[in-house]
């Protein structure tokens, strides 16, 4: 693998190696909590906080951790930061914390965070690890906000709780707020993006 600069490490998580759209990691929160834009945003930011902190920590202690117990160690670290984020949300944003329900504690098992720790932070120095984690986290947040917005607009007729279509003008599609709506919109999103990527490859390739 060619050596990448810090900016490149940051950028790749936003689009080219986006956790949800490209690597299909972190699907559970991406599908479960995105029934409104604000839920997607908070979930994304909470995950970003956890991934940046845990990658930083893992990268710092990467030489101290024996290979055999590295996974439990990472999980303890990740779980610690997740609990911090959960308590913080409960104290400062009780309403949103309630809306996200069990999904904040479940960030612990988000593969995106584990993959950053295992594949990147445990093998790279501090700065690239932080850049990589921040890019991944923000890329994840972006997808969650877009997905949440699509579902909120079609399912409630509003975005970030601002009504843009009244019930008289538009009958909300209840399915968009239910789990099938999440699968459909995410599937379509990935499908459309793959289609245009292929198209661009074909055009530039010829």
């Amino acid at each position: 693998m060619a050596k990448r600069t810090i900016t490149e490490e940051f950028k790749k998580g936003l689009w080219a190696e986006n956790a949800v759209l490209r690597l299909l990691l972190g699907m559970c929160p991406a599908l479960a909590v995105t029934n409104s834009a604000i839920n997607g945003l908070v979930m994304g930011l909470a995950s970003t906080f956890v991934v940046v902190c845990s990658s930083t920590m893992v990268s710092t202690i990467r030489r101290l951790v024996p290979r055999q117990v590295r996974i439990p160690t990472y999980i303890v670290i990740i779980a610690g930061f997740v609990t911090l984020a959960d308590l913080f949300l409960k104290a400062q944003f009780p309403a949103i914390s309630k809306a996200l329900g069990p999904y904040v504690p479940l960030i612990v098992v988000n593969c995106m965070i584990m993959s950053r720790a295992e594949f990147f932070a445990s093998k790279h120095p501090l700065k690239p690890s932080m850049a990589d984690a921040l890019g991944t986290g923000l890329g994840f947040t972006g997808v969650l906000v877009v997905l949440g917005s699509i579902r909120e607009i079609l399912g409630f007729g509003s975005i970030f709780d601002i009504v843009i279509m009244t019930e008289e003008a538009f009958t909300p599609w209840v399915i968009m707020i239910l789990p099938p709506g999440a699968f459909l919109s995410l599937g379509l999103m990935i499908g459309i993006i793959n289609h245009f990527t292929e198209l661009r490859k074909k055009r530039s390739g010829i």
Binding site: I61, Q68, P72, T73, V76, I77, A79, L87
Partner: peptide, 23 residues
Amino acid sequence: MMLVLSSTAIIVGAVLAGFFQLV
């Protein structure tokens, strides 16, 4: 291995306990 894992757990636990007191 035991040392690393348990010290990680102790540190994380202590930080969490402190933060919990706070909030």
